[in-house]
Structure formats: structure tokens, C-alpha cells
Amino acid sequence: MNFFLDLFMSGLTKGSIYALIALGYTMVYGIIALINFAHGEIYMIGAFTALLASMVLGSLGLSGWGLLLSVAAIAAVYSAMYGWTVERVAYKPLRGSSRLAPLISAIGMSIFLQNYVQLAQSPNFLVFPDLVPQIDFLAPVARYISRTQLVILLFTVFSMVGLTVFIKFTKMGMAMRAVAQDQTMARLAGVNIDKVISATFVIGSILAALGGVLIGCSMRQISFYIGFIAGMKAFTAAVLGGIGSIPGAVVGALILGFAESFAAGYVSSSYKDVVAFIILIIILIFRPEGIMGQAQTQKV
């Protein structure tokens, strides 16, 4: 039973991180039907920004929760700027061209950002400071849930609630839903499409940056390459949940997290990726549109 709980918590935290990144993929896809391959890189830039911010703020004497929250805020803002710029530079000029052009542009952007960080920062693994303060009341249950895991879960839950409120109850959120349903109609109704698309990239980037900060705290080392695996897994989660669907991304991410964790525990960690992806394939065979995705009707 203890073992099961261990694995459950491990799957939950893994899934939470995948979810934060997967939301960016799925939101962008929902709005402009583009798979933003540079998204994993935004996550990596979030982690690097957090590292730099924590050094500066730490030397200014900030510590504890204040440090963690302000570092997360700075990383979110900075990554949001990156997300916005990437859209303006690499995708906007290609809007209306063939569907493959922005896809290639996205891959190019991903490679560019990776190499840029490698050259501008460091090709090595860098030490990420332990930003999560000690949480005393956790000590008796630290075996099941470490303080970092708790913080990851809290951050994820708050982000999800915030995102839901934003999408459901704000004007921009409503505009996003409108653009996702029918871009032309939304434009006719007076929605500023450019603004909505930019906002989508900004929000996706903020979530990815939070993921970057959290994974930095958990692994305590980062490199220019971390965006690749995390991005790959998150993208998988988004497809699994039904790309374009926001709750789907969360469900897909959690399924992937649990599948990996339980496969590692009950089958073998050597085969956990195999098991996780077999589950993915089976789900996609029976529901090609993903768990919560909507089937696209082909227009002839």
C-alpha cells in the first residue's frame, strides 16, 4: 500500500509538470492549429531566467517564500515576453501560408533558442538553487511527499484554477474561445484576432515558465537541453488528452504521469516509456481525437 502511495504521488507530480507545459501546446493549437515546437524551449528559458533572478534577488537579501514567488514571477514575465516575440517573429508573418511553413518555422525557432542559450549561457549543467523553504509540518510524511512535490502540486492547482477563471469569466477568455471556435466569425464580430493570438502565446509561456521554475527546484540542475524531453512528453500528453482541449491536456498529462510511474513501479523502469507509450497508442486507436478532443468533421 505504501509503495502504491509512493508511486501515486510520483505520478501526480510528474503529471502536474507535464500539464503545465502541455497547456501551452494545446492552447496554441486550439487557436491557430499550430504545433508550437518552440514551447519546450520557453520552458527552458523560464528555468534559466529563474536561476539568474534567484542569484540577483538572493544577493539582495530576499529568501524563503518571498524569493520563490518573486523568482517565479520574474521568470513568468520574461518567458511571456519570449513567447510573444517568438509568435511575432516566427509565426505571424507566415499566417495564411501553407500549414507546414509555420511548423518548420517552429522547429527552427526551437533549435535557435536552444543554441542561443547554449552559447549565451553555458553548455554545462548548472546548479539550480533550492528555492523551496523547509515546511515543518511535512516532516512526518516526507516519505510520501517531499516539500518540492507539495509546492509543485500547489502551483499547478493554482495555475489551473487561474486559467479556468481567465478563460471562463474574462473578456479576453471569451474572445479566445470565440477564436478557437471560428476565427472568421470572431473577426466579423469585432474580435482582434492578433491580440487574442498574442495573449494565447503569453499565457502558454507563463505556464511553461512556472513549469521550468518548479522542475528547477525539484531537480536542482538545468541545462539548455531540458526543454526537449519535457516538451516531447508534454506534447504527447496534449495529444493524448485531445489537442486543442484545455481540460484534455490536464487529463492527458496526469494519465501519462501515472502510466510512467506505475509502469516503473510494477513493470520495470527500463520499460516504463514503452508501457506509457503503448497505453498512448491504445487510447489513440480507440479515440483518435484524444480523450477529450472533438472529432473534426472533414469538409468536402
Partner: peptide, 16 residues
């Protein structure tokens, strides 16, 4: 067992 390099969390390996 083998573990995946560059994973976002090794908590499951720790449980094992």
C-alpha cells in the same frame, strides 16, 4: 533496471 536520462522526476525510481 535502466532509467531514462534527463527525466523530469526520479521519484518513482526512489520508490522502487
Amino acid at each position: 533496471q535502466g532509467i531514462t536520462s534527463g527525466e523530469v522526476s526520479y521519484d518513482d525510481v526512489v520508490s522502487l
